[in-house]
Design a protein around this nucleic acid. Structure first.
Lengths: 209, 209
DNA sequence: CCTATTATACCCCAAATGAGCGATTTACAA
DNA sequence: TTGTAAATCGCTCATTTGGGGTATAATAGG
């Protein structure tokens, strides 16, 4: 890879934390930190002219938040690796950030040495997360709230989502079309929807099918 | 927490790897490893009577694979933390495993000390992943393949998925119902589907909406 | 034992859908 | 300049859908 130091940029409104991080990074061989900002707006304005490998970005910032800034930053430098720093472990914020392009997500109580390690890990193609965060991320892959639908209903809903009509479904599972219709009415009722479209939408998003 | 050693169980068909792991774990203070198996069937049969905190489970096993075994294991001990071991970084397998309840996912070339660390991390509520895996997991939150649909079409498809009919959509975005209908026909054509149900199904799964 | 749930089946009917044909305008790339 | 894609608007018509009912039998769960 490259032999030059890893250029780290910091966007963090807390003066104390910002300086501490910068000092630690600058004091570590192989790391450089020339650019620090206390707000997202200034960082975005300066970014186009800077050489940066890894960005430490606070989530809770005055004015534009880190979450809001992230898409704009990625628009300027799509390949920049962004590590989010946060005090809160807010599920929503985590997933929003990751969707917006954050590569890792660290809690602010993470030890400085861990943060340095995370920066290296990001450079090496990893996705460092505080372990609490990692579990949340992994957990969201399941989120298998047990279905309110019966097996039969789930089966019918799946066929429905594949574009089949009453008659086809009835033939596929050896029922009367009337019965299929009744099941579908019950499905709608259970999912609190009134159309096929809503039912499929909800079913997929809730991982029912 | 507990003061007793962490009880680790290993299911791994490669004799070499299994013994090595067991020796390392047994040789480390705070860790115990009394139960090792070379196939999933035997492990599942024995599991109900064993005291186990963490399971190291090989993905590639003869007979029942680790992936297939995982749901059965979780059915017996829902709170058991399972770390999957694999040589391949197969996207599908990773997500299947995580969905089935794997807590972490390690590549077999992970250093033994890292594996010990991962076991501790799992016990502490984390979700250890090899860094390549972590990036895959994080990456899958985006997976924003650019859409074949135009903006207008995407907008209409979204409204469609919310259960609106032609007329409602037309009113919502100030168009003639005829136009809405034409757009929807074009959507079907682009997605290669013939019904609303299929379109919504495909759109959600492909992250178009 | 009683009740809720599930799975099954039927009827009527207004409204919505999808297939099959059109069409014009704008805009941008080849 | 000639296409091509996108966005807009129009028609007809057979088929499908969803809401409103009702009803039976079997199987749970309390």
């Amino acid at each position: 890879m490259k032999d030059r130091p890893i250029q780290v940029m910091i966007v963090e409104d807390d003066h104390e934390i910002r300086q501490t991080l910068a000092l630690i990074i600058k004091g570590t061989p192989g790391f450089h930190c020339q650019h620090t900002f206390d707000n997202a707006e200034a960082a975005i304005a300066a970014l186009p002219n800077l050489l940066v490998d890894v960005l430490l970005l606070d989530v809770e910032l005055p004015g534009m938040t880190g979450i809001q800034a992230l898409p704009k930053i990625k628009a300027i430098k799509p390949d920049l690796d962004c590590l989010m720093l946060t005090i809160r472990q807010d599920d929503e914020a985590i997933f929003t950030a990751i969707s917006a392009g954050a590569t890792g997500y660290l809690l602010k109580d993470t030890a400085p040495t861990e943060i340095l390690k995370s920066i290296q890990e990001v450079q090496a193609g990893g996705a460092p997360m505080s372990m609490q965060i990692a579990r949340k991320v992994v957990g969201s892959f399941r989120a298998m709230n047990e279905s309110p639908l019966s097996e039969r209903e789930t089966e019918i809903l799946r066929l429905l989502s594949e574009g089949m009509n009453y008659r086809s479904i009835a033939e596929a599972i050896f029922l009367s079309p009337h019965t299929v219709k009744t099941h579908i009415k019950n499905i709608y009722s259970k999912l609190h929807v009134h159309t096929r479209a809503e039912a499929i939408n909800k079913a997929i998003r809730d991982k029912l099918i």
